[in-house]
Design a protein around this nucleic acid. Sequence first.
DNA 1: CAATACTGTTACACAAATATTACAAACTGC
DNA 2: GCAGTTTGTAATATTTGTGTAACAGTATTG
Lengths: 231, 231
Amino acid sequence: MSDSKSVLIVDDEAPIREMIAVALEMAGYNCLEAENANEAHSLIVDDKPDMVLLDWMMPGTSGIEFARRLRKDETTADIPIIMLTAKGDEDYKIKGLEAGVDDYITKPFSPRELVARLKAVLRRTTPKGIEEPVSVDGLTLDPISHRVTSEQDPIDLGPTEFRLLQFFMTHQDRAYSRSQLLDMVWGGNVYVEERTVDVHIRRLRKALGARHDYLVQTVRGTGYRFSANVA
Amino acid sequence: MSDSKSVLIVDDEAPIREMIAVALEMAGYNCLEAENANEAHSLIVDDKPDMVLLDWMMPGTSGIEFARRLRKDETTADIPIIMLTAKGDEDYKIKGLEAGVDDYITKPFSPRELVARLKAVLRRTTPKGIEEPVSVDGLTLDPISHRVTSEQDPIDLGPTEFRLLQFFMTHQDRAYSRSQLLDMVWGGNVYVEERTVDVHIRRLRKALGARHDYLVQTVRGTGYRFSANVA
DNA sequence: CAATACTGTTACACAAATATTACAAACTGC
DNA sequence: GCAGTTTGTAATATTTGTGTAACAGTATTG
């Protein structure tokens, strides 16, 4: 929910676009719509959507042609594309895949199928960062197993505290204001009270215990800092 | 026939693909074909072939590049790859092996040679994780007899629970999201609700009983983890 | 040493995530 | 086609997390 992905829907029929948009928005995506290739191209350049849903049949530049064009241009080459096609013809599938389309889906389709495929494509195109365990003075956070330990002993953290600690451990020795922390840990477009950060800091400190709570330091008038050095 | 192995043939020249396909099918393999890297990638994700035959020279993403890409991604990292190359150049061989290619065959080759190498590669890659029994704290899963026991006592599992447990036991101490589990255990081209995972986790836990259900741990906000260490 | 401005702590309502159960459809071996 | 599984989903219960407000404490400043 921190940053919902945006999807550009390209189809010449407005009702279909609408239907898709509704389905996707219910699933938490932001939707852009375009009626033809030109319009789509402008939107892609301007808004850089995370993925494009492209109708196969369109007046003017056909979907497949447009897909090829996107692939050729370096700036748009790695935007994932899902093709919408009316027929389940295998031939189309081949051609689509040739053009570098990531998946394709046959009309009519259920909203569920659409969302599922979309997710799958996003999942396998979004490169996952290499996640190395970090540790400081006996405190270790392992993003792989999603675990925090203090000298081997497990520490139980809620999701938010975990993210907060992860952020801190990868951004040490630097003071962050409450709003910066909200941006970085909570995500850009959520509205919560700044003081809420205090509460989570408190929870984090409590969980870290006497052995490690010195790592989370208050910077009066500014915010908080994570550091192995005492202030 | 319940499980004849499937082989993905990646080559830009259709006649060559065909030739290979015919040879392999006669030898009892199922063949998939792809003309380029993108197409190949989709097929791999969707159909999870047991092995990939990869042409060295291809327009667009070259074979070697593609091999590297497959090795990088965890979900495709252990699919065996055999490279096809027109030249017997040792240099290519080195590069191929560096990229994690399992074997290497020089065109032109006889169908017999191809099948022989393929068998050899499958023989030495398949048993890797799949045939060895795994056990943790008195819980044992034997892939050969397809049986799970808790201190000698048999545990009855449905097919999905079995695969889920097998996946978990071979990927311990690591948190997986529901979608990842769907990808890994259900397969790339099925579209089911994420919550379905919960239900199967429940069934698995129930089957494991009080003695072992602690192994399946929920990681709030993320998914699940299998581990012998208590959270 | 107030007065003030921050920060710490706690409790609590309600949101969100997960657990559990029930059920119908799809599948399996007769 | 029939009995028994298995599977995915929806509905419901339960647990756990989150944000806020109210109050307590502590540094800062004139």
